[in-house]
Design a binder for these strands. Sequence first.
DNA 1: AGGTATGTTAATTG
DNA 2: GCAATTAACATACC
Length: 262
Amino acid sequence: MPELPDVETFKRYADSTALNQPIASVHVEANDLLEQTSPSGLGRQLHGRCLTTTRRHGKFLFVRADDDGWLVLHFGMTGRLEYGTSTSPDRTPELRIQFENGYRLDYIAPRRLGRIAFTKDPGEYIAAQDLGPDALTLSFEAFQERATGKRGSVKCWLMNQSALAGIGNVYSDEILFQTRLYPKTDLRQLEHEDLHTLYRALQEVLHTASRNQARPDHMPDTYLLPRRNSRSRCPRCGGRLDSLKACGRTAWYCPQCQRRKN
DNA sequence: AGGTATGTTAATTG
DNA sequence: GCAATTAACATACC
């Protein structure tokens, strides 16, 4: 799940549950997810402090621990947050933050493709990761500027975290479907008007998905997202959907509505 | 069993 | 230098 709308949903979830309670203990189960810190180091940074505010940039979530610094979470392909008291039966979470009130915030990443870090300055961390501007807080002018002079497929560019931060395989498909662009369209083929349409679709899709908590079953009927498979039909023309390989991923699209230019 | 999966990165190829 | 592809990472699901 975790693309921009999913991480935005995690942020709101954390905001409404885990803030302003003293941390009693921290347990790191997945040592290999830690970046530039150790389990005991992270414990020292968080113990006794409160989580006070959160910030999202692209697919990264930053959680502030008082005035000490920020916990950094990346959710990989299958990560999520869970807040509560019930004893988890199946499996130890990759990271558990236990609060003094008996509740805890669990970071669960079954495939362990995520990342846990700690930084004094999210801006520095973002720069060090070479992340582009967040896809949702980007002006059209900046968007256009980043696209000009580039070549290669528009899908690859949308998914490139250094170009824009936050869009992955599923939402790039949705944005291109709404824009009626063939995924492998070269950036140099896009005229000003095309770029503007693309930008507007990007904003609309990411806002709509965030508002609906990134749940496929809550998406508008006009969306491709819940239909990214060979059994479904295009919500616009009713035709068969098709897939192709681009940037090492499977792109789903409608060959009728998203025609290749030329 | 084998293929696929919402992500990132290093190595390789064009 | 840039863009695209492949393999690798670790696990779950069909």
